[in-house]
Amino acid sequence: MKVIEARGLRKEFVVRVKAGAIRRQKRVVAAVDGVDLAIERGEMVGYLGPNGAGKSTTLKMLTGVLMPSGGDVRVCGFTPVPQRVKLARRIGVVFGQRSQLWWDLPLGDSFDLLRHIYRVPAAEHALRLDRCRDLLDLDAFMQTPVRQLSLGQRMRGELTAALLHGPEILFLDEPTIGLDVVSKQAVRGFLAELGEKGDTTMILTTHDLADIERLCQRIVVIDHGRVVHDGTIQALHDRYRSRRRVIADFDEPIQTDIRLPGVELESSTGTRLIFAVDEVGPLISQLTQIGSLRDLSIAEPEIEDVISRLYLSS
């Protein structure tokens, strides 16, 4: 079942640009320019793009914050803006730069207020809160005012707040921005476990591609307001012929001329050979025959590299 359907989704803004020493003239800019998107229940989708590509604008239209300039969009069966009150009960939103918690109240009091706002039965609320307290380790700061929380603690609180009413879709806009390594691991682990259950659809926008690799089976890349890729990470690697690297260290310097289809020698420095390869198996078989192999490692292609190549080509 599709929980998000968008066809020709468009958002235009009017900006004023310089047209002389003191004159300004209006110009229409399309922040989102004809996006088609269909997302099934339970999917975890990474929504990527450079700054200004239209990621956050898309999320704001899907959540009912912004009215589209054109196109059709349905989220959980609702049209977001005119039915945003009904939609709000079916979605959760986490924006890394904005808070839905009460700044001067203890974290636990914010959770209790949200229960009343969303009219969640007490037993359901307690069950979900207990799960989040356990998985996100909230107990140590449940009675701390939100303004005194660290960024990592507040983000764990934001995730909990977004989930207490049992949303069908969770929109995450830069959820790990500014977090330390430990906090990032806690948030990623929680989201991964949530996604494995298949009950919650997640749409994640981020510049931290480690989040995408860990969490998302599908990525949608947007640039200049248009979708330029919709598929798996592997499909993106295949599209740009990203290749793994095999690093072979020998006990003694090696002089070799390995010629195999899909294998390219990138560097040879004494006892170390580095190859870019399509298939690892045939190369490893050859390497074991040409000398005393001390160490062998395989480096997966960097998603940052292929994403940057996609941006440059779009």
Rank of each mutant, 00 (worst) to 15 (best):
V14N: 01
R16W: 12
V17L: 11
Q25Y: 10
K26Q: 14
V28S: 12
D33K: 00
V35T: 03
L37Y: 06
A38K: 00
E40V: 11
P50A: 13
K55C: 06
T57L: 07
T58R: 06
M61A: 13
L62V: 01
T63K: 12
M67K: 15
D72F: 11
V73F: 00
R74Y: 00
V81G: 10
R84N: 14
G92E: 08
W102L: 11
W103F: 05
W103L: 01
D104I: 07
D104F: 04
L105D: 09
G108Y: 12
D109W: 08
P121F: 13
A122Y: 03
A122R: 14
L129C: 11
D130K: 15
C132T: 09
R133Q: 10
F141Q: 03
L149H: 05
L151I: 10
R156W: 11
G157S: 01
A162W: 12
E168H: 01
E174L: 04
I177D: 02
V181T: 08
F190M: 03
A192W: 14
E193M: 10
G195P: 08
E196R: 15
T200W: 06
T206S: 13
H207D: 03
A210Y: 00
D211E: 13
I212F: 00
R218S: 04
H224P: 04
R226I: 05
R226V: 07
I233Q: 06
R239Q: 14
R239P: 10
R243T: 13
R245E: 13
Q255V: 12
R259C: 06
Q286D: 00
Q286F: 03
S292Q: 12
S292H: 10
R294W: 01
I298C: 00
I303F: 15
Y311L: 08
